[in-house]
């Protein structure tokens, strides 16, 4: 609604996606060639900033709608946004606690994973990144009344989310276990499984949430003016992505690779 021209907004989504992809490649390069934790942290923060602004629209929290009728949809939308962001803030403390645990227990060293894991991790990270891109397209399409684009975008997002889940559970976990990193083997295994597990649980809830939105979207319950369910599912999905932006380097890239 801030941008009236749909193609401009879509182009913006593409540019942001390219930035994120380049930064992810850069991240991997930094991990392999330089091994600087500080640089990795900086890149992660830049990526989070991009997602917060362009995909999660954090600026929408700052609205001047004092004069609106308190019972109007617009006013309640503002309240709902604050509620959702407060929930995300609260949820972030769980992930923050896990993040702190990882560094407390393992220091700045790498996890004892096999090199296969690097490939899997980069693949599923790309999948999640791609899903965020389509999620954004779905939301923009909804805002501009393009129902087909919305259905296409959200279906693809759900599909990519499922691919991510399958990647974690059926490829990454067995490969870690083969490398001797099991939940009960040592602290590294415990950290690895609780971090990936907690994140996967959030991806799963996100997929469920998106499926409900897709079903109701197919029945035509949302309009360009009233689609809070779509917006909240989108924001939640991007938040889960943001968590991974930190977890990916923390689990795979920190500590000089190879």
């Amino acid at each position: 609604m801030e941008h009236t021209n749909k193609s401009d907004v879509l182009r913006q989504g593409v540019i942001v996606f390219i930035f994120l992809a380049v930064l992810t490649a850069l991240e991997f390069f930094v991990a392999v060639e330089i091994g600087s934790t500080v640089l990795l942290a900086m890149i992660a923060f830049v990526k989070v900033g991009l997602v917060f602004y362009y995909y999660m629209h954090i600026y929408r929290l700052n609205v001047q709608d004092e004069d609106l009728d308190r019972h109007s949809y617009q006013y309640k939308l503002g309240t709902s946004r604050i509620g959702l962001w407060l929930f995300l803030l609260s949820d972030a403390f769980i992930f923050g606690g896990l993040f702190v645990s990882r560094f407390n227990l393992l220091g700045l060293g790498p996890l004892p994973l096999s090199s296969d894991s690097q490939f899997t991790a980069l693949t599923i990270t790309s999948v999640l990144l791609l899903s965020s891109f389509f999620m954004n397209r779905a939301e923009v399409s909804m805002e501009h009344g393009d129902r087909k684009g919305f259905i296409f975008g959200i279906s693809l997002t759900i599909l990519l989310g499922l691919v991510f889940l399958a990647g974690v559970i059926t490829v990454e976990w067995p490969s870690a276990i083969n490398a001797g990193v099991t939940p009960s083997s040592n602290a590294a295994g415990a950290v690895f499984f609780i971090m990936t597990g907690m994140h996967a649980f959030h991806v799963l809830t996100g997929v469920i949430f998106l499926s409900i939105v897709l079903r109701n979207g197919l029945r035509g319950l949302y309009s360009p003016e009233k689609h809070w369910a779509v917006e909240s599912a989108t924001t939640y999905w991007h938040f889960v992505d943001v968590v991974w932006l930190f977890f990916y380097p923390a689990l795979y890239l920190i500590g000089k690779l190879i």
Binding site: S101, L105, P183, S184, S185, N186, A187, A188, G189, A190, V191, F193, I194
Partner: peptide, 10 residues
């Protein structure tokens, strides 16, 4: 899971 188990590096 050995988060707080010093035998497992927790």
């Amino acid at each position: 899971m050995g988060f707080f188990d010093s035998e497992k590096g927790g």
